[in-house]
């Protein structure tokens, strides 16, 4: 997959279609986000890991709103870009999507619902893919058990803000998680459950299920359980799935016309 992708991306640069390509670069084993601007660097472009590239794209655009860039994106990256665009954080007109599907190993690791973008440049999307974990164990718990479960899990939180920092949809410059009115400063673990409830509520209708928060969490809190249930609710209540189409109206941010 990588060689074809490198050809494709090289062509985008050579033809002047874009000024740069945002992707991952392998620098002596360190895989990091990188803006490729020259064809001769393309050899270092890799697909071996995953990174919240949408946030990086948003930052690049904020620095230079007119610049046209391509992004090598997985399903979750594409969904994040679309949700960001709905919130005026990114301009899709200046982005060329270079979509790639995730392989089974990656999709399994993320327990991803949709491990591919809308359009794929190279590679095969997994057919008939269904994630293995459907959170039945959690759903089967009684309310009391759920409370005990979350109390236990959230007591581990060391308020590192890693979940928020990694999240592509947490784009606020002033974050309510740092507002002492809600989350007392200098207290560990944060008061149950406000910290995580604020984040969950703020991500309702926004979370694209990329799993970056859970990946980032140093103490292994199963944040994706919360996110998964939230996404299910948004779908059941409003028929809304995040990141599908820029035209779909986000149900949380609409008002009823009477």
């Amino acid at each position: 997959m990588e060689p074809e992708l490198r050809d494709y991306v090289g062509e985008l640069l050579d033809s002047g279609t874009v000024a740069g390509v945002l992707a991952l670069k392998d620098e002596l084993g360190a895989v990091k986000p990188y803006l490729f601007t020259k064809n001769n660097e393309i050899g270092d472009l890799v697909l071996t890991s995953k990174y919240p590239l949408a946030s990086v794209m948003s930052m690049l655009q904020k620095e230079d709103p007119s610049i046209k860039l391509a992004i090598v994106c997985r399903g979750c990256d594409e969904r994040a870009l679309i949700e960001l665009a709905k919130r005026n954080q990114i301009n899709l007109d200046n982005i060329v999507f270079v979509g790639i599907p995730c392989d089974e190993e990656m999709a399994d690791k993320c327990n991803c619902l949709q491990p591919y973008p809308k359009e794929i440049v190279t590679g095969e999307k997994l057919s008939n893919w269904v994630p293995k974990n459907n959170y039945e164990d959690f759903k089967n718990m009684s309310t009391e058990e759920k409370l005990i479960f979350w109390k236990g899990q959230l007591e581990k939180c060391n308020k590192c803000y890693g979940c928020r920092n990694a999240c592509p949809l947490c784009f606020c410059s002033d974050c309510e998680l740092e507002n002492a009115l809600w989350v007392k400063h200098g207290r560990l673990p944060p008061e149950f459950p406000i910290y995580h409830v604020i984040r969950a509520f703020h991500l309702a209708g926004k979370c694209v299920g990329c799993g970056e928060c859970e990946n980032a969490c140093p103490v292994g809190i199963p944040l994706m359980t919360l996110n998964h249930l939230l996404r299910e609710d948004i779908k059941d209540l409003f028929g809304y799935m995040t990141g599908q189409d820029i035209e779909d109206e986000n149900p949380i941010n609409t008002k009823e016309e009477y």
Binding site: R87, N88, Q89, F171, C172, S173, D174, N253, T254, K255
Partner: peptide, 23 residues
């Protein structure tokens, strides 16, 4: 509005019934 904190997401514009917030 605290302009330093606003990220321009336009949520308020969509929700205001009176078109008071302006981008």
């Amino acid at each position: 509005i605290n302009e330093d904190a606003c990220v321009g997401c336009k949520t308020c514009i969509v929700l205001c019934p009176y078109e008071a917030p302006l981008y």
